[in-house]
Simulated assay, not measured.
Amino acid sequence: MIFSRKRDNAGRHGGDESLGSYGSDEAATPARGPYDVSEAPADVPRLDLGSLQIPAVPDVEVRVQADPQGVIQQVVLVHGENALQLGVFAAPRSEGIWDEVREEIRQSLRNDGAVAQELPGEYGTELRARVRTPDGPTDLRFVGVDGPRWMVRGVYQGQAATDPGAAGPLAECLDGLVVDRGQEAKPVREPLPLRLPREMADQAAPDEAPREV
């Protein structure tokens, strides 16, 4: 089942706001995310998907694909012609895994005949590639963010894949993302569990067709 939710003027989360929410006694709080749940700014409207909490940003549609049990298989944010697919994974306590994961993605793309290029980005080294699809060539931009025992991977499509400045509200969503890793031991790189919010899960009744909320 596929559900989608469009965020309309429900509030913003940007760098200036996050700084303004914390005084000098909260100097350890990062100026922007993705945040660990232990350090996320309060009073920001978010869609709670379990391990991921997505900030409410105007005109950004959250598309969630889930199985009949409400377990989320895919999360994609859409704004205009641009899209951002999100994933969150377990990582070791001692080090990040994005460098290793990025190299594996690059090798996989190369094996599929795509040319991938590493470039500096706001979060460190990014990976950009043009891949073949049934609809023609598609540009992708892979972004990775290492956090405390987790890693967020984002994949941009559309103009935002080649021009980071075009990401706009999608980049704002990534900056305001919150990860709730939990305390359970998990294998490195295992996807962290995502679930539908109650109001969306209620729509997953067997006889009910998917609809937009």
Rank of each mutant, 00 (worst) to 15 (best):
Q107I: 14
E95I: 02
P206W: 04
R106M: 10
W150A: 01
R198A: 11
R63K: 15
E190N: 02
G15S: 07
D25H: 12
L86Q: 05
R106G: 13
H79K: 07
L49D: 07
P55W: 07
G182T: 06
A42G: 15
Y123E: 13
R189C: 10
R132M: 08
S38M: 13
E103Y: 03
E39A: 04
N111V: 12
N82K: 11
P137S: 14
G168P: 00
R153F: 06
A185W: 11
V101N: 04
P187C: 06
A10M: 15
V57T: 12
C173W: 02
V178S: 11
A40D: 12
D146F: 01
F3D: 09
V88T: 13
G124K: 04
E17A: 14
R198T: 10
P169T: 00
E103R: 07
Y35L: 05
S38P: 00
A91R: 03
Q157H: 11
V143Y: 01
V75W: 03
G136Q: 04
G70C: 05
I54R: 02
V60N: 03
L47G: 09
A10V: 15
Q69G: 11
R211K: 10
E172Y: 09
G154W: 00
P92S: 10
T138D: 09
A204H: 05
P120R: 14
D163T: 04
E61G: 00
E212I: 11
E199A: 12
D8R: 13
E199Q: 12
S51C: 11
S18D: 05
D112V: 09
A42M: 14
V143L: 06
E39G: 02
R46L: 08
V76W: 00
G113I: 05
A56S: 15
Y35A: 02
A90H: 15
Q107K: 15
A209N: 03
D180F: 01
G96N: 09
L177C: 07
G158T: 02
G113P: 03
A114C: 14
Q203A: 14
Q74M: 04
G14F: 14
L170Y: 13
S24L: 14
T133M: 12
L84I: 04
Y156H: 08
E95A: 11
E39S: 05
K186C: 11
A167M: 06
P41V: 04
A160F: 00
M1F: 06
E208I: 10
E95D: 06
P134K: 08
F142K: 01
V78I: 12
D8A: 12
G11V: 02
V71C: 00
R198E: 11
E190M: 06
V145P: 00
D135Y: 14
I97P: 05
A204R: 04
D16Y: 06
D43N: 10
A167G: 04
V101K: 01
R93I: 12
V57C: 04
E95T: 06
G136M: 06
Q203P: 06
E17F: 13
A91P: 08
R149I: 02
V78N: 03
E212W: 11
A31R: 04
L109T: 08
S108M: 10
L170T: 13
G158N: 03
E172N: 14
N82Q: 15
Q203R: 14
R128A: 11
V131F: 03
G20T: 11
Q74T: 03
E190K: 10
I54T: 07
T125R: 05
E104I: 07
G124R: 03
S108L: 12
P206G: 01
G96D: 04
P148V: 01
R7A: 10
N82R: 12
